[in-house]
């Protein structure tokens, strides 16, 4: 996985609470069996005026000029500013893939839904949690200031604004470490395979019914 250490980039605001993963990437794109190519359909229902789908060329669709990410000043944005409970709803990792594919490296919000939050770390997208008053302030400043850039530093756990204000954020040590180093979770777990086998042996004795074979009773 691509590591995240620090990143400086243009901030774009999505000013509404409870943005769900259906809004981030609508269902028709979930039919793709690939991990890439979701970027043009990020926030698809808001981004375009015409309906879309995997079999429709996005270039033929009218863009919604009112949608914030279509505005010229936010082109090239790589940090997304959002409200509380961002990424709620469906577990679809496609939401994170779409954000990443569209060029976003970090999200800043007061809170996230659990599954979305966890999915971010598997894909090098840093979800930064700041308190609601700090997020409010960033919304005010980004809307008032074209070209508003932030520097997000995972090593130092800070967000720095253009006027030099430093906002600190908390993050779990293990998650920070894997993201800083871009570690492969599965590889790390497989280093513990002896422990997994020992656990299985013990549980097979204690609670053998848990190891019921799904092929059983399957005629």
């Amino acid at each position: 996985m691509e590591p995240f250490i620090r990143h400086k980039g243009l901030l774009a605001p999505i000013d509404r609470p409870n943005v769900d993963t259906d809004a981030i990437i609508p269902k028709q794109y979930l039919k793709s069996i690939k991990r890439t190519g979701f970027g043009p359909n990020l926030f698809d229902d808001w981004r375009y005026l015409d309906p879309g789908g995997l079999d429709i060329d996005n270039a033929t669709r009218r863009r919604n000029p009112d949608f914030v990410l279509n505005q010229p000043r936010y082109q090239g944005a790589s940090i997304l500013l959002a409200r509380e409970n961002f990424g709620c709803g469906s577990s679809r990792e496609h939401a994170v893939w779409a954000l990443h594919d569209a060029g976003f490296r970090a999200v800043i919000a007061p809170s996230y839904a659990d599954i979305f939050y966890s999915n971010c770390f598997k894909n090098g997208l840093l979800p930064v949690t700041l308190d609601a008053t700090e997020v409010d302030r960033l919304f005010r400043e980004v809307e008032a200031t074209p070209g508003y850039e932030l520097e997000v530093d995972l090593e130092a756990r800070t967000v720095t604004t253009p006027d030099g204000a430093v906002l600190r954020f908390d993050i779990d040590d293990f998650r920070r470490e894997t993201l800083l180093k871009g570690l492969d979770d599965i590889g790390l777990t497989l280093e513990k395979q002896d422990r997994i086998r020992a656990y299985e042996q013990r549980r097979r004795r204690e609670a053998p019914w848990l190891f019921a074979d799904t092929a059983r009773g399957a005629g």
């Binding site: 991990r35 577990s91 679809r92 999915n119 598997k122 599965i186 777990t189 395979q193």
Partner: peptide, 12 residues
């Protein structure tokens, strides 16, 4: 779980 975790469960 997300798809990366689906892969993790399958593998480990």
């Amino acid at each position: 779980i997300g798809t990366s975790e689906v892969e993790h469960v399958l593998a480990t």
